[in-house]
Lab assay of single mutants.
Amino acid sequence: TFTSIVTTNPDFGGFEFYVEAGQQFDDSAYEEAYGVSVPSAVVEEMNAKAAQLKDGEWLNVSHE
């Protein structure tokens, strides 16, 4: 299960995956970082959410 939350205070020191406002979700980078295949429906969902981000916001993507 993939989830996401919007934050204005990303923790770059941890093992977190963020999408910056104005960027798209990079499923290849996510797969490389976590060894998890990302279904195309999830990629579309995360890109739709990322498109709604305002300046200074980040989308924190995770999975269980």
Rank of each mutant, 00 (worst) to 15 (best):
T1D: 13
T1Q: 15
T1E: 14
T1V: 14
F2E: 09
F2Y: 07
F2W: 14
F2P: 08
F2M: 08
T3Y: 11
T3E: 11
T3A: 08
T3Q: 12
S4L: 05
S4V: 08
S4E: 07
S4N: 04
I5L: 12
I5N: 11
I5Y: 14
I5V: 14
V6R: 00
V6Q: 02
V6N: 01
V6S: 05
V6K: 00
T7S: 06
T7V: 14
T7D: 04
T7Y: 00
T7P: 00
T7A: 04
T7N: 03
T7F: 00
T8Q: 10
N9S: 13
N9W: 09
P10C: 08
P10F: 02
P10M: 04
P10T: 03
P10V: 04
D11Q: 11
D11H: 12
D11M: 10
D11C: 14
F12K: 07
F12L: 10
F12N: 05
G13M: 10
G13N: 13
G13P: 05
G13A: 10
G13K: 10
G14C: 12
G14Y: 07
G14D: 08
G14F: 05
G14V: 06
F15M: 14
F15P: 11
F15T: 13
F15R: 13
E16N: 14
E16L: 14
E16D: 12
F17Q: 03
F17W: 10
Y18T: 01
Y18K: 01
Y18F: 09
Y18G: 01
Y18Q: 07
V19K: 00
V19C: 04
V19P: 02
V19T: 05
V19E: 04
E20P: 14
E20H: 08
E20T: 08
E20C: 08
E20N: 06
E20G: 15
A21M: 07
A21N: 07
A21K: 10
A21T: 05
A21Y: 12
A21D: 02
A21H: 11
A21G: 05
G22W: 04
G22M: 06
G22E: 03
G22A: 04
Q23T: 13
Q23M: 12
Q23W: 07
Q23A: 13
Q23K: 13
Q24A: 12
Q24G: 09
Q24I: 12
Q24C: 10
Q24K: 13
F25C: 02
F25E: 00
F25R: 00
F25Y: 02
F25V: 01
F25D: 01
F25T: 01
D26R: 05
D26E: 06
D27I: 14
D27S: 15
D27M: 12
D27N: 14
S28V: 15
S28I: 13
S28H: 15
S28L: 14
S28E: 12
S28P: 04
A29G: 07
A29R: 10
A29W: 08
A29P: 01
A29N: 05
A29V: 08
A29K: 12
Y30G: 03
Y30F: 14
Y30Q: 01
Y30E: 00
E31Q: 11
E31I: 06
E31T: 14
E31F: 15
E31A: 12
E31C: 11
E32D: 11
E32S: 13
E32M: 13
E32V: 11
E32T: 10
E32G: 08
E32F: 10
A33S: 09
A33L: 15
A33V: 11
Y34S: 04
Y34K: 10
Y34W: 09
G35S: 07
G35W: 03
G35C: 09
G35D: 05
G35E: 04
V36A: 04
V36M: 08
V36E: 04
V36Q: 06
V36I: 14
V36C: 07
V36S: 04
S37Y: 11
S37H: 14
S37F: 11
S37I: 13
V38C: 04
V38W: 02
V38Y: 00
V38P: 06
V38M: 05
P39C: 06
P39W: 00
P39F: 00
P39D: 04
P39R: 00
P39L: 00
S40D: 10
S40C: 13
S40M: 13
S40L: 13
S40P: 15
A41Q: 13
A41G: 11
A41D: 12
V42C: 06
V42T: 06
V42P: 02
V42Y: 04
V42Q: 03
V43N: 05
V43S: 07
V43P: 00
V43A: 09
V43H: 04
V43K: 11
V43Y: 06
V43T: 12
V43W: 06
V43Q: 05
E44S: 10
E44D: 13
E44P: 03
E44A: 13
E45K: 06
E45C: 09
E45F: 07
E45I: 11
M46G: 02
M46Q: 02
M46Y: 02
M46R: 00
M46K: 01
M46D: 01
N47G: 03
N47V: 05
N47S: 07
N47W: 01
N47L: 03
A48C: 10
A48H: 14
A48L: 13
A48Q: 12
A48E: 11
A48M: 13
A48N: 11
K49E: 05
K49A: 08
K49N: 05
K49P: 06
A50L: 09
A50V: 09
A50H: 01
A50F: 00
A50M: 04
A50G: 04
A51F: 00
A51I: 07
A51G: 09
A51W: 00
A51C: 06
A51V: 06
A51Y: 00
A51M: 08
Q52N: 12
Q52K: 12
Q52L: 14
Q52W: 06
L53S: 01
L53G: 03
L53W: 00
K54W: 03
K54G: 08
K54S: 10
D55R: 08
D55F: 08
D55K: 13
D55L: 10
D55T: 13
D55Y: 08
G56R: 03
G56V: 02
G56T: 04
G56Y: 05
E57P: 00
E57C: 03
E57I: 00
E57R: 00
W58Q: 01
W58Y: 11
W58M: 11
W58P: 01
W58H: 02
W58G: 03
W58V: 03
W58R: 03
L59E: 01
N60Q: 15
N60W: 15
N60F: 12
N60S: 14
N60D: 04
V61S: 00
V61A: 01
V61L: 04
V61G: 01
V61Q: 01
S62G: 09
S62N: 08
S62A: 08
S62T: 13
S62W: 15
S62Q: 10
S62L: 11
H63Q: 06
E64P: 10
E64A: 13
E64G: 13
E64Y: 06
